[in-house]
Design a protein around this nucleic acid. Structure first.
Length: 152
DNA sequence: GCCAACGTTGGC
DNA sequence: GCCAACGTTGGC
């Protein structure tokens, strides 16, 4: 069982959008970075838990928890010319991108802000806090996971 | 809107 | 395989 942190822009798809989906479940699509894809494809398993992180917004931070309910499968948005995630180099037989399905598990009573996360010595090694990090999927260690939950 | 950091592309 | 140019991310 692994822990993750998944970023999404609330203007595009925030935790409230996930809450509103049937079964509070949705596919996590649009990964267009190899490192992030590899984390998803090679590491993410059903039953894993992930923080929902709001990025590129007035109050960036962790807003809740999701559970992985389906492991990596081909990201069909890469084949759809109408999608903003369309990748002309992908075909049905050679789709280099994948998505996973997530289900909302918990919305935190408050946002754990990026500033708070940065101020915690116990989280100094978190990938997502590294300067210039742009990965939309990063692994979270069990101790980091527990520490963040203790901040609520 | 600015800009630093980083990934990808493509010419050579 | 190098590397400059370009596009994107994301905090501020």
């Amino acid at each position: 069982m692994n822990y993750w942190l998944l970023k999404s822009e609330p203007d595009t798809f925030g935790i409230a959008n996930l809450e509103a989906m049937p079964g509070q479940t949705e596919h996590w699509d649009g990964i267009r970075n190899y490192q992030a894809r590899n984390f998803m494809r090679d590491g993410m398993r059903v039953g894993d838990l992930a923080f929902f992180y709001h990025s590129n917004c007035p109050a960036p931070g962790i807003v809740g928890i999701m559970e992985i309910v389906r492991e990596a499968y081909p990201d069909f948005t890469a084949l759809d010319p109408e999608s903003k995630y369309y990748d002309p180099k992908c075909t049905e037989d050679a789709n280099r991108w994948c998505m996973a399905d997530v289900r909302l598990k918990k919305i935190f009573p408050r946002t754990i802000s990026l500033a708070e996360l940065k101020s915690e010595a116990a989280l100094a090694d978190m990938l997502v806090l590294r300067k210039g990090n742009r990965l939309s999927i990063t692994p979270v260690s069990p101790s980091e996971w527990d520490h963040i939950l203790s901040m609520l």
